[in-house]
Design a protein around this nucleic acid. Structure first.
Lengths: 146, 146
DNA sequence: TTAAACCCTAAACTATGGTTCATAGCAAGC
DNA sequence: GCTTGCTATGAACCATAGTTTAGGGTTTAA
């Protein structure tokens, strides 16, 4: 027997506050959700699929506006397949760029941590401070290390 | 001969608007930057190192407040090495989590793109739509595909 | 049958990370 | 000396993504 779900069940499942689901609905992200006679939202299994996609796009940094565009395309049926593909391909490029940025900057962070964790961290940092102080002195600028 | 740099030169170098540098300064991220008699900010080479770090933390999603904490620790000299390491180690965990999230969701996006790009995309999508429509019908809910 | 738990909307509010504007002081070239 | 361009500050403004509040219906279980 097919079941329906309340907003609370959906919220718990996706670890989203109910208020966020309200917000997404207001922003047009949930046009597929029905309401009962009392005006309560009624979610079906297939709605979970859509919402999972919404979370996927949100988790990869797509703005609400663009998610809405994608969902709107989905509701237009097969005619929008091409556009959906283009939208996701562009988004995939963005995600790959994000990965690159994270990767590159993670290296720097790791390097710094290693410096701080090294045996000789105090001397390394002292050296850095001295470098800054010498440079500032030569340029007649304030010593930022008081 | 050591050189100094104007805010515009720094902005161009880091691809940041001048207004953002003002904003960062106001938020306490640039305590190491001096000013000349006219009140103009004067940047030295070593300031570029600090700003590079700020960008690195910003690019990996660290909030301004936490970047400020880190910079403040840096200005305290060698006494704060332990705290700096802990702060960066925690941040590194966050970055790794972000990478995980991007990785997992990218897989889903790629799958969808492949579906849309497939020979048989129209039939696949038709099948999905039919599944939704059947389910909604059984549950006596509106058909979201008009 | 009534309290507790749940759901609704609209509107106001919040947080974050800036950007823009108004006003004005400095600097460089002609 | 004057215009153009760079810089400064403070305050107002903006976009994004929600969260909270107020006021009011609904459902359920004892």
């Amino acid at each position: 027997m097919k079941k329906t779900y309340s907003i609370k069940e959906v919220a718990d499942y996706f670890h989203l506050p109910i208020s966020t689901i309200h917000y997404y609905d207001k922003k047009g992200l949930l046009p597929f959700v029905s309401k009962n006679e009392a005006g309560y939202r009624v979610f079906s299994e297939s709605d979970f699929g859509f919402i999972k996609t919404i979370c996927c796009l949100k988790n990869t940094g797509m703005p609400i506006k663009d998610i809405r565009t994608y969902i709107d395309l989905c509701m237009q049926g097969t005619a929008s397949i091409q556009q959906r593909r283009e939208l996701l391909q562009q988004h995939k490029k963005n995600v790959l760029k994000q990965q690159q940025v994270l990767h590159d900057n993670l290296k720097e962070i790791t390097t710094k941590i290693q410096r701080y964790a090294s045996e000789d961290s105090v001397n390394i940092i002292k050296g850095q401070i001295k470098f800054v102080q010498d440079e500032k002195k030569i340029l007649n600028l304030e010593d930022p290390f008081k």
